[in-house]
Nucleic acid binder design. Sequence first.
DNA 1: GTAGGGTTAG
Length: 426
Amino acid sequence: MAKRWEDVEELMDEMVRVDCPPNIATFNTLIAYLCRNGLYEQVHETLSQMPEHGCTPDLRMYATIIDGICKDGHHEVANDILSRMPSYGLKPNVVCYNTVLKGLCSAERWEEAEDLLAEMFQKDCPLDDVTFNILVDFFCQNGLVDRVIELLEQMLEYGCIPDVITYTTVINGFCKEGLIDEAVMLLKNMSTCGCKPNTISYTIVLKGLCRAERWVDAEELISHMIQQGCLPNPVTFNTLINFLCKKGLVEQAIELLKQMLVNGCSPDLISYSTVIDGLGKAGKTEEALELLNVMINKGITPNTIIYSSMASALSREGSTDKVIQMFDSIQDATVRSDAVLYNAVISSLCKRWETDRAIDFFAYMVSSGCMPNESTYTILIRGLASEGLVREAQDLLSELCSRRYRQMLVGGGDYCGGITRMDLPT
DNA sequence: GTAGGGTTAG
């Protein structure tokens, strides 16, 4: 629609001509679209057109604008608009506050978030369950789990009801901090608050138990969840398969892959991907290739991740030709090669002392629009150096350094479309 | 036509 803005303007003129003038709903639709796409010049323009149609921005429109601005990361502007709303005769509601609160939390600007909460109390704007969920998520994302139980209690005191996602967020926060026993306890206690854990809640705790290598507890929990009528889903299985593979227990992972079908789950792309990678890392490249074929025969199309696992496995066993063959075979397919895949190819060439070809590949990578990452440079620099091409290695190293410097410079921008100059009609 | 949050693979 961005390109057809003239059409929109023309359509609005026509609406007036046929005596069906745009109303507040028309403008809200437009503003929502423009905000979603960061087209603040047009937001400004549209707002200035509203008075001639007898329309005034309402609470909902402000909420939309504030949301768009927050999602673009311009919290000061959002906060500024929020504070100017009363002068336009509008009292910000809980939706407006929550939107800005979420923006401040995402930007980890906790002090300002606290100020905003204080303002909500002071301006007599009651918090709701969304407010609490934003805070719970923020605490969990930032490892502040020691404060989160208290927050849940405050939430209940306030008359807001945590739901299964609220509890699962907290459980996940505990697991991420290694507090597995706390996670298990909450999983068991949430039912007493009238909220039953679901498959996702159990899967998260299972992952935590696996990470802590508490296999017996994990098995018990699986039985427990099934007893409770919560069936494992593909993600549950994939989580377990992943841990088995990481521990080198690929045979057991394959067993679990078969068990999925018995339990009414079909192994998906990620199930196969995990086991294929596990087989490759265990040096069972032939078996990995066979499983890849099984997967393809089941109608599942391999993606870049699977190919890069395969390429790494082939590269590891020194089958450089097979790596290149595979790479060539997917060039006309829909899979888009990424840096990890290119790195596997480049690395296998370096292994065979073919740094010339590796450099050619590097050039092809860049010309195909794939951005090299640090590993790409590391692989090449090592390859060049081990062939005694010190000068070339040094050049590449300085290129890497200047790239890092450029990346440091990017992202310092402070531009915010036309919204800073926005002169909202009243 | 307004705000929020949870799980899997290289």
